[in-house]
Amino acid sequence: MTKTIAKTVLSLNLNGVVRDDVIPDNLLLVDYLREKASLTGTKIGCDGGECGACTVLIDGRPRHACLTLAATCQDSEIETIDGLSRDSRLTALQRGFNEKLGAQCGFCTPGMIMASEALLRRIPNPSETDIRDALAANICRCTGYVKIIEAVQFAAQALTEGEPAA
């Protein structure tokens, strides 16, 4: 029968909420988010590190949730697409992806937006090359990326014109 897998009490800040969960040590962060925390905004598009759909922010940095063990996120701050908008108000990036059609089927979108979020926090006024570099690990199969670049540029402009980030 099943070998017993060691368990850890994981304490972290998930989208602004501090929580504790008992988790097996081999649990991936993406499974923790989707199954334990019922936050299904983060997507699984591949078998590990191929597509970027699961990109979340760990302490502000974009990471593949499918290549991260949840247990390594002890005391971390995790941000996912589910917690990005506050009070149902779309952020500049979400508006950009919506209005510029950066999202067609929407499956890569959570990862794209989180990777872009990390970029705009680091470089509020990114060049096109900055955007391409920041999204190099995120595959989209619908847009050819043209409108994704426009969506990020839209958000950057909206933010530099003084709109609050969320």
Partner: peptide, 16 residues
């Protein structure tokens, strides 16, 4: 026109 189901997709609420 932005897509009528765009907000769900950009907020993670769209259910696949």
């Amino acid at each position: 026109k932005p897509l009528v189901d765009g907000p769900e997709k950009t907020t993670g609420k769209a259910m696949f």
